[in-house]
């Protein structure tokens, strides 16, 4: 782990909402290609942390560095251009566009074609093929012409991952990628994520409630409680950490 290059460095993030201190001096770093889980009970500050890291919320203090460059204070669209993809806890797609168009528009943006107002979108055959390939990867190729709004919840989540992948991120941040999915769907999604991470050397940072998934795929786990990092380490270290067991995991791990 020490030899690994650090891709993301979070230093001393503090964020308060009125009197509520959502994040208190949160620091951690993520190595390139790592699969990292951020866990913690509801309200621990996971989503706030993600929002701060991707530029949606400004931190009160502290900074986030991606590939050694400070990204705090940049707007989301600039941060994304640096190679950070994000999927959301609530399904966040383009509902009244087809599944194909959802990915196509992401590719246009990533390949800086969005400003072209003259050539019909379908003439970009390279992008069309790439979009279909990404849809193939997440198992949605068969539904490319459906309106995104009629997809099942699991498929919408997969579509969201496909949209995020289209930006060819080096780091993908997933906020509860399997929320609301059936057990079967979650397992498939997790397998998919791990496969993509391995094949493309993609770094994953994700939050998740399902401990089977967390301990199944993570290489490192960070535990947040009331905005404070109470533990950070390998799955084995987290399992053995008495504070984590007491505060969050309870008996589940012991058994």
């Amino acid at each position: 782990m020490d030899t690994q290059m650090v891709i993301l460095e979070v230093r001393g993030i503090v964020k308060s909402f009125g009197g509520l201190r959502a994040l208190q001096d949160v620091s951690f770093s993520v190595g390139a290609g790592e699969i990292r889980a951020v866990i913690g009970p509801n309200g621990a500050g996971k989503s706030t942390l993600f929002n701060v890291m991707t530029g949606l919320l400004p931190p009160d203090s502290g900074e986030v560095a991606f590939e050694g460059k400070r990204i705090t204070g940049l707007p989301p669209h600039r941060i994304i251009r640096k190679g950070i993809g994000r999927s959301f806890q609530i399904t966040n797609i383009f509902p009244r566009m087809s599944v194909f168009e959802n990915v196509q528009v992401a590719l246009f943006s990533h390949q800086k074609k969005s400003r072209n107002p003259f050539v019909p979108a379908r003439k970009f055959t390279g992008i069309s093929e790439e979009a279909l390939a990404i849809l193939e990867q997440v198992g949605l190729a068969g539904k490319y012409d459906a309106s995104a709004s009629v997809l099942s919840h699991g498929d919408q989540k997969r579509l969201e991952i496909a949209i995020s992948l289209a930006s060819r991120p080096k780091l993908l941040m997933l906020d509860e990628p399997t929320a609301g999915m059936s057990r079967y769907e979650s397992r498939e999604t997790v397998t998919l994520l791990r496969k993509i991470s391995r094949e493309q050397g993609l770094t994953l940072v994700f939050t998740e409630h399902d401990m089977d998934i967390v301990f199944g795929i993570s290489e490192k786990i960070m535990v947040l409680q009331q905005g404070v990092v109470i533990a950070d380490g390998t799955p084995a270290e987290i399992k053995a950490n008495p504070e984590v067991r007491k505060a969050y995991l309870g008996e589940e791990i012991v058994s």
């Binding site: 669209h77 074609k113 949209i163």
Partner: peptide
């Protein structure tokens, strides 16, 4: 033509979900 171009598709994505669009860059 403008509507069916990549620019038009990007405008549509803004209509559908401006925040997600900004997360596409």
């Amino acid at each position: 033509r403008i509507r069916s171009s990549p620019f038009g598709a990007t405008l549509k994505s803004i209509r559908e979900n401006a925040q997600r669009a900004s997360y596409l860059g």
